[in-house]
Design a protein around this nucleic acid. Structure first.
Lengths: 185, 185
DNA sequence: GATTTCATGTAAGACGTTACATGATTCA
DNA sequence: TGAATCATGTAACGTCTTACATGAAATC
């Protein structure tokens, strides 16, 4: 059985916390979204597929004031698949889409002023990202839940990436100046 | 006119080098693939769409020994769209899919040994990525083509990211040890 | 009292990937 | 001389996003 990574992420989330699609979606947003974003709709699609495959068991739950919901949990078979995938060799290579770098790359088709603004925007974005992750790290540090240190590891990774991006914007600022001087000459 | 970023990448590539889908695809692979990968088929689809919109002009070219091809270039209108997009405010936020971090995050469902191997694999991958980018940077440094310094800026960005990832694997190794000790206790 | 948010989800379509096709050329 | 690569692309399918729907609760 060969499933996309998103399926295993879904199984993993369920292994930590059974719940409705809405629950899991929120949980995903607060945890794995930084390195594996999953939209709400996609999550519902995954849950349906995994249930068809017998890797997830869902039960309809009636509610009074709130819409009825379907609560899901990973089956034994689902947990086995997850473990197998985790133990499997290698991993899909990182996929990145970074529009800011695209704008840089094609920078000579715009003005120096715009590139300057872009650099400022990048810096601000990286700073926001960094401080958000630091806040999460602080929260994690005080909550002794199982697997907390591994979660912390992924957050630390994000922080280092943000800091690299931050350092990079400064370097880029200088480089843009040099580029402009060179093109002018 | 509101196009996906991939369309503007295609326009930008054409603005630098007119050519067949095959040409552009190769060019993309050697340049923007690190921060905005585009598959060959997607490129053909983009070219078709942009031509429908009048942003790209394609002309069929007969060839003797090689398959006939369609050579494309950006129209005036296409260049204007590109410039407008470049000058536009803000930028799409970075999208990342990192399966290795997923495996870390759900690490407590596998064995310490596997996590150790995973860290080693990550380290190797980051090192490969880094040295590949350094090679590109060296090549760029010797070729004084227009826009070279901006291209170099994007490569430097990738190098810093790879180095952050590299530094991170070591930190992660130690953290995994701590996690194991804690779980055992 | 009107607007936003919560708590559930669905539907449609855009985006992106993998596999296939083909004849010439180069490599082993 | 058989296999890989080049140089073109196409077809089919899977992933993912954006927009929509709905009634209750909270907020302003």
């Amino acid at each position: 059985m060969n499933l996309p990574t998103t399926s295993y992420v879904t199984l993993g989330l369920l292994a930590k916390h059974p719940g409705s699609g809405y629950d899991i979606s929120g949980f995903a947003e607060r945890t794995v979204a930084h390195f594996w974003p999953i939209s709400k709709s996609q999550l519902y699609a995954e849950l349906a597929r995994l249930e068809d495959l017998g890797l997830v068991a869902g039960t309809a739950v009636r509610q009074e004031r709130l819409p009825d919901k379907r609560v899901c949990e990973a089956t034994e078979s689902g947990l086995a698949s997850l473990r197998e995938w985790l133990a499997g060799p290698g991993f899909e290579r990182v996929r990145v889409k970074n529009a800011a770098l695209v704008k840089f790359f094609f920078g000579r088709f715009t003005t120096p002023e715009r590139l300057g603004v872009l650099i400022e925007e990048c810096r601000a974005e990286a700073e926001t990202r960094r401080s958000g992750l630091v806040a999460i790290a602080d929260r994690l540090a005080t909550q002794p839940t199982p697997g907390r240190l591994l979660a912390l590891a992924t957050v630390r990774y994000g922080i280092l990436q943000a800091e690299a991006a931050l350092a990079r914007t400064d370097e880029a600022g200088a480089l843009v100046q040099r580029a402009l001087a060179e093109e002018a000459a």
